[in-house]
Design a protein around this nucleic acid. Structure first.
Lengths: 208, 208
DNA sequence: GTTTAATTTAAACAAGTGTTTAATTTTGCA
DNA sequence: TGCAAAATTAAACACTTGTTTAAATTAAAC
């Protein structure tokens, strides 16, 4: 598995992400990408092999850093609750910076048609879940977290809450009076993040 | 505007809905549709004019009945709250029977690329909003509903809640222990519908 | 500076796309 | 039965698709 991408490859991936997010995977042609990235059509096949493999590289590229960040987080000396808070903050920031690719992962690849690179993405999810599991079990050992919690459901809760907010953006823009892009993003990084943190904390910690 | 569709046209639309929902609009070719519907490729252009117009017809066909149902509902003699309850039940049932087309409307047409038939769909939404407005203002006149409510936001709330539940189906299947398709649909028609009804009621009626 | 490898290119490939045409069959009506 | 309209067909249209090829250019290594 080679993950050393040169400048040209990264440039192609960035253009691809934008166009995929705009027009969908099927709606975007290699010629669209090569035109936007100002390269020859053959370069995509030369560097990535195929359009499908380009998508796979894009997914790997955009989700690769997360794994290392989680490993770093595990080794930090923090109280379990604070560690979870930081994890959620990390997730939300990541998702908010990669709207394009996560939109594709959730709606393009959710269809029955494409099941190819689901494997490589499922590997990443497994690794992330493993990191989360370590943090939770650390908290359980310290007697801070409940032991009857289903760890597999924490990630869906964290991501699900964020996606619902992001998907219904026009709706929330109105009801919350968030008129600018800045206001909206600020709301995500403060109130929404706090809400998710409190939800997960309530799920994990003992209650009277 | 001709809405008299013959058997063949309806057959084509039904096949198109299934395939669009499965593989997306761009991912489905006219030849895919004609093959599945066992007709000649030219028939789609013959009956609908183009692939885009086929989609437009599909949207109109699948959303047409709703307007009449709402008009009938308005004329029913029911208390305002009961009318709203019935309206929500009607919406949820509709959405649940037309998963395919609403998936397309929300994720295929939400992209920047296609803005063509958004007009015909926006007409339907306007008509539905008009019906809702009548019901709400009736309740306001009777002193049951608050007068400072933004009617335009009721539909997003009703639909948004349902869609979030349906989009994250694998998630809720697990946490709610809904193992069969029947159990899942039953939950939608009982607990979820009730939740939406209570949410809207709380929003509309005065509280101490 | 020559040679080997990596990069980039234009062109072509076969297959698939939406749509149209023109001929044929089927249908409905006088 | 005859005739005009509608329905259906196979074929072709021009264009786009992802991918490959083979030549040209650039870069690196000796």
């Amino acid at each position: 598995m080679e993950n050393d991408l040169n400048e040209k490859q990264i440039q192609i991936l960035q253009v691809a992400e934008t166009l995929f997010a705009e027009k969908g995977f099927d709606g975007t042609s290699i010629r669209d990408i090569s035109k936007e990235a100002k390269i020859n059509v053959a370069m995509v096949s030369y560097y990535f092999g195929s359009k499908e493999k380009l998508l796979e590289s894009l997914v790997l590229y955009k989700t690769s850093g997360l794994k290392e960040l989680l490993i770093d987080l595990i080794e930090e000396e923090l109280e379990p609750v604070q560690k979870i808070y930081k994890l959620i903050d990390l997730y939300v920031n990541r998702l908010n910076c990669n709207k394009g690719i996560y939109r594709i992962l959730h709606f393009e690849l959710a269809s029955k048609k494409r099941v190819l690179e689901l494997e490589s993405f499922s590997d990443i999810k497994k690794a992330n879940l493993k990191s989360l599991e370590i943090i939770i079990k650390e908290g359980q050992a310290k007697g801070v977290f409940r032991k009857d919690v289903t760890i597999e459901l924490l990630t869906p809760t964290i991501l699900g809450t964020y996606f619902h907010f992001q998907m219904n953006k026009p709706f929330f823009e109105v009801i919350l009076g968030l008129n600018t892009e800045e206001e909206y993003n600020n709301y995500i990084h403060t109130t929404l993040t706090m809400h998710i943190q409190q939800t997960i904390k309530a799920l994990l910690t003992y209650e009277s």
